[in-house]
Design a protein around this nucleic acid. Sequence first.
RNA 1: GCGCGCGUAGCUCAGCGGAAGAGCACUACCUUGACAUGGUAGGGGUCACAGGUUCGAUCCCUGUCGCGCGCACCA
Length: 897
Amino acid sequence: MIDKNYQPSDVEGRIYQAWEQAGAFKANRPDRAGAEAYSIVIPPPNVTGSLHMGHALNNTLQDVLARFERMRGKDVLWQPGTDHAGIATQMVVERQLMERQLPSRREMGREAFLKRVWEWKAESGGTIVNQLKRLGASCDWSRERFTMDEGLSQAVLKVFVQLYKEGLIYKDKRLVNWDPKLLTAISDLEVVQVEAKGQMWHFRYPLDGVTFNPEDPSTYITIATTRPETMLGDGAVAVHPDDERYKALVGKLVRLPLAERLIPIIADEYPDPEKGSGAVKITAAHDFNDFDVWTRHRDKDYFKKQINGGLINLFTPEAKMNDSVPPQYRGLDRYEARKRIIADLEALGLLDKIETVTNAVPHGDRSNVVVEPYLTDQWYVNAAELAKPAISAVRDGKTKFVPKNWETTYFNWMENIQPWCISRQLWWGHQIPAWYGPDGKVFVALSETEAQAEADKHYGKATALKRDEDVLDTWFSSALWPFSTLGWPEDAKDVKRFYPTSVLVTGFDIIFFWVARMMMMGLHFQKEVPFHDVYIHRLVRDASGAKMSKSKGNVVDPLGVIDEFGADALRFTLARNVAPGHDIRLGPQDVENNRNFATKLWNAARFVEFNGARRVEGFDPKSAKETLNRWIAHETQKAAAEITAAIETYGFAEAAAAAYRFVWNVYCDWYVELSKPLLTGPDGAAKDETRAMAAWALDEILKLLHPFMPFITEELWAVTGERTALLALSPWSKLEGLADDKAEAEIGWVIELITAIRSIKAEMNITAPVPLVLAGASAETQGRAERWGDFIKRLARVSEISSATAAPKGSVQLVVRGEVAALPLIGIIDLDAERARLAKEIAKAESDIARVDAKLGNANFVARAPEEVVEEEKAKRDEASGRKVKIAQALESLKGA
RNA sequence: GCGCGCGUAGCUCAGCGGAAGAGCACUACCUUGACAUGGUAGGGGUCACAGGUUCGAUCCCUGUCGCGCGCACCA
C-alpha cells in the first residue's frame, strides 16, 4: 500500500542510502565495461564551503545529466571532490585559533599550523559533501578527491616542474595586487572594484632652475592624484609628446617636493591631454600603468640615474611607509602618511586644488581591505602561450559553449590574458618545488633529493639549499582537476576512459577561473580539450530579483528548502526555471508549486494502485487494443521523445516543462479520468489491459522524471512493483512504434467535446446534467459517441446522448473538430445571449477566413511560399468556412425558437 | 570606452519567419469515490519604439529609448 502522503524527509535519507549501498553511482561498473563512457567533473567547491543556491542549481543540472546518461546505459563518472581554498581555509583556521585563544599561526610555526589545518579539514571539511547528498547528487563518492591529496599534489609537482623546464613558468619582479592584510599576492580576479567617493588632489611640482611662484604657472607643472602618499616614489612626470603646452618642458627637471629629488619631465603616449592637467606623475612601483610607462623608458639615462632606476617601493608589506621615504613619514600607515603629505604640500603652497570624485578602489575579495599594486618577486605562468591552443580549440569547435555567446567572453579574456601570478605568500597549499642555493640560484625539481643532487652537481660540492616558502594559487591545482582526479600522472587507465570529459557545468562568473585554466592545462598536458561542452548557467536570485547576499540577509538556504518541501521540489523548480542567459528568480511559492506537482504524481500512483493496476511483466504497449490505451501509449512516446531531445541539448527547462505537462495535463487530467470507467467497470480483457497500461505508463513517467526528481520516483518505483533493479540503474526507454493518429483523433475529439460542453455550461451557469444531441454526425463520430458515451456523460455532466439529422430547435450548438454537438436547452438559456454568442463566433470565423483569403489572394504568397504552407492555409480556410456554415445554421435554427 | 544580454498577460519567463504560450497571481463555480498540496471554467497582450528585408516579422537587419551584466579606464 502506498502511504496517503509523501513525506520527503522520511524517504530521502533512506533512498540515498539504498543508492550508495547498491554502488549505483560508481563508475567502471563491470556490467558497463563495454558501454560508452560519460564523465563530468564537479567544479570543486571550496572545502570551507557550505551549500548555497548556486551550488544547488549547478549540481542539480549535473545530476540531471548524470542520471539521464546512466539510465541510457552509459558508464557514468561524476567525479566529486573539493579544493583546498588556500586563503579561505587558512583564514578559517586562523580565526579558530584566535577564538580559542591559541598561539597564532606565526607563533606555532608552519609545520604545526599545517597539522591544525588538516585536523580542521578532517572535522569540518566534509560539510558540503553531505549537503550535496541531501540534494541527491549521484557522484561517485568512492572516488572523492581533494586538491591537496597525495595524488593531486603529485600532479601539481609534475606540472610545475615540466612547465618550468619548458620555460613556461618563470620568476619575475613585477607589480602584483598585494593584500596588505593577508600579506600575499592575489589574483586580479580576486580583486573587486568598489565605487567610492574620494578626492583628487592637484599638486604643483616646481620646475628646476626657476624660483617657484604659486602665482606664476610657468614656474611649476601641475599633476593630479587620488593617492598623494605615492608621490614620494615618483620617478618622472609624463606628458603627451603632442601636447603643445608641455613640449618645451620635455627633458626639463622638476623638484619633487618633500622628497627633494630631481625628476625628469618625459614624453609618453600614456597621458591623455584631455584629462586633468595633461601631466601625470609616474610612480612605477605603485601603479600598473605607471609601471608600463617606466618599462618603456627604463633604459633611458634619466631613469638609470635615479634611485633604483626610478622604481621606488615606498611600502612595507603591511602598507606602511618604509625607509625609502623621508624620515618624518617612516612607519606611518599609508592613510596617515597621505594626510601628512597633503598638509605638508599645502603648507608649501603646492596644493592647487581638491576635487571630489567617485572612483573605483580595488579591494581584496577575502580581506576586504584596499589592495596595493606592489613590487615583489613572484612566480608566473606564461598564460599567453598556453592560451593559444586553448583559443583555437574553441574556435575549431572541439569545445563548445552552451549558450554559444559565452565564447565571445572567453575569447576576449584569453586574447588579452596577462602573465598568471601563481605564487601566494601563504602556508596552506602546494609549496613551490623550488630550492635556492646560497647565491640565489634556483633549482626546480620533483623532490628535495633531486634538487639537492642538481645543486651539488652545480656547485661541485654538498651545498645547503633553502626551499621557496611560498605556495601555489589554488586555481593552479584546480586547473588540473579534469585529469588529476582521474589518476594522472600515476595511472593512465581512467584518463584514457574518461578524458576528455563530456561536459563542464558551471556559472558564468567562473569562466575565467575554471574553464580558461582547465583548457590551458588540459591541452598542454593531455593534448586534448578537458571537456567537449561547457554549459554555462547564471545566478539564482531571490523572489524579488535581488542578488542573494549575506549582508542583505536575503539568502535562501537550500537545505532549509529541502527540509520544507523536499529535494525533488527544489531540483524541479531550479530545472524548470533555468534559462540560458537569464538569472533565476526563486521564491518559496515556486518551490511549493513543484512540491504540489510531486504530490500530484504521488496521488496518481495511489490511484493506479487502488485500482489494481500493477506492473505486468512483459506487457507490450504495442499490443493494446483499447483506443484509450493506444492513445496514452502514443502520448507517452511523444513526451519521452520531447524530454530526451531536450536533455540531450541541455534544454533542462524544456524537458522539465514537457514532463510536467505530460504528467499533469495528459496522464492525470485525461488518462486517469477516462480510465476510471474501465478500471471500476466489469472484469475482462479491457480492464486487464487498462490496468497493465496504466502501470506501464506510470513506470515510464517515473523513468522520465527520475533525472529531475530522483527521490520520489525511486520510492514509487520500489512500492509499485517487484523490481530487479533500482530505478537509478534502470534503462531509459526508447519508445518506438507507438504513434497512433487514429487513437489521437478519437480521444482528441472526446477531450475537446467534453471541454466544449463544460465551457458552455459554465458560461451559461448550468450545473445540472443536460442532454447532448449529435446533429448530422458522421458514422465515425456516432461510433465514437457510442464508445465514449459513458465517459462523456460523466466528465461533461451530460444526461443522455442521441443523434439526429439536425439540431433540435433552439439548442446551443458547438462545433467540435468539424462536427456539431447540440445541447437542447430551450427554456433554460437566454436566447438573446446565445444569439450574441453565435454572432461572435461567426465574426471570429469570418475574420479567420478573411485573413487566410488575404494570403491566398496574394499571388506572391502562392508563388513564393513553400507548398506545404500554402496547403496548410487552404486547410485552415476549409476548416474555418465549415465552422462558419455550421454556426450560421445554428443561428438560423434559433430564429424560430 | 569595449563586449554580452534583456524589454512578450498583473508577476516570472518560454517561443524566435507562417493564426500569441506556460506557471503563478486574479475571478466564478465545485467537499464528483487519487489528490482542496485538488477540480472546472474565465478575464487579461497594437510581443518597448521607429524604420528596413520578406509573399508574410514577436521572431531577421538597422537605429532609438529603457534595464541588467562582464571587462577595461578613472592623473
